[in-house]
């Protein structure tokens, strides 16, 4: 098994609270992996440690075998680690064309060009068009993002992360708040991502998780409670007690 992303004994505490507790986690290359856990289990903290928004108290993060613990967030994107956000983080005044062009231009290392016109850059134009087509954003590509319906914005959220051509893609509750009807289309898009992209899905919705993931990690109180394929996890008594059981009551 080839490894895409790995953590070693990763810890993060805020004052007296341990949000991430000695986590050893492995994301295989090409994985469709889900990270689940009840509210406050430390999922978001974990993602923030992986992407460099937070620095760990101790432990190590490796991307494709290279230690990236001390690497800045933007440099991690350059190395192939992209993410979406649980709450939309978009460029509201831009159009989808501009937003995807921005991500593409940074990936192609164009960001330091002060005088080049965007539309004269054939590679930039071609790759921007490809992303817009893949995520079916071409019909709304000239609308201001802030004025688009929520479901479309969620799509742009994923498209923008994918435009960075990541080898590892972290999806933080991609379907959160999306109406049921659009949810299917959105998850079909996620399922249709190229196989060589390793995907870690952080999700609340068990339906989505069990439909999408071939491997599941359960996080409770900052530590890994269980890990395995969906059947194993579903059968695990500790998981049922800590999470699924509690979920069923709610």
């Amino acid at each position: 098994m080839s490894v895409a992303l790995q953590t070693f004994d990763l810890c993060k505490s805020f004052g007296g609270i341990t949000a991430t507790d000695h986590v050893d986690f492995t994301l295989a290359k090409g994985a469709r992996h889900a990270l689940i856990g009840p509210n406050g289990a430390g999922k978001t903290t974990f993602v923030n440690l992986l992407t460099g928004v937070l620095r760990p108290s101790s432990g190590r993060v490796e991307l494709k075998g290279e230690d990236i613990t001390a690497v800045s967030r933007e440099a991690r994107v350059g190395r192939g680690l992209a993410r979406t956000f649980q709450i939309n983080q978009l460029f509201g005044t831009m159009t989808p064309v501009e937003m995807i062009a921005l991500v593409t231009s940074e990936r192609l290392g164009r960001g330091r060009q002060l005088l080049r016109a965007l539309d004269r850059d054939a590679e930039l134009v071609a790759e921007t068009a490809e992303i817009l087509a893949r995520f079916r954003l071409d019909d709304i590509m000239d609308e201001r993002i802030a004025t688009l319906p929520y479901g479309k914005q969620r799509q742009i959220e994923i498209a923008a992360a994918f435009a960075a051509k990541p080898s590892v893609l972290l999806l933080d509750e991609p379907a959160a708040g999306v109406p049921e009807a659009e949810r299917r289309e959105l998850m079909a898009m996620v399922a249709g991502l190229p196989e060589d992209v390793s995907v870690l899905l952080i999700e609340h919705d068990m339906d989505l998780v069990f439909r999408f993931a071939t491997r599941i990690t359960v996080l409770v109180n900052g530590h890994v409670l269980a890990e395995g394929d969906p059947d194993e996890v579903a059968r695990d008594p500790a998981v049922r007690a800590a999470y699924l059981g509690e979920h069923a009551h709610g």
Binding site: E74, Q89, L90, F91, L102, A160
Partner: peptide
């Protein structure tokens, strides 16, 4: 936040 997550230094 999104700018840095898009690789903008």
């Amino acid at each position: 936040l999104r700018a840095s997550a898009s690789g903008v230094p």
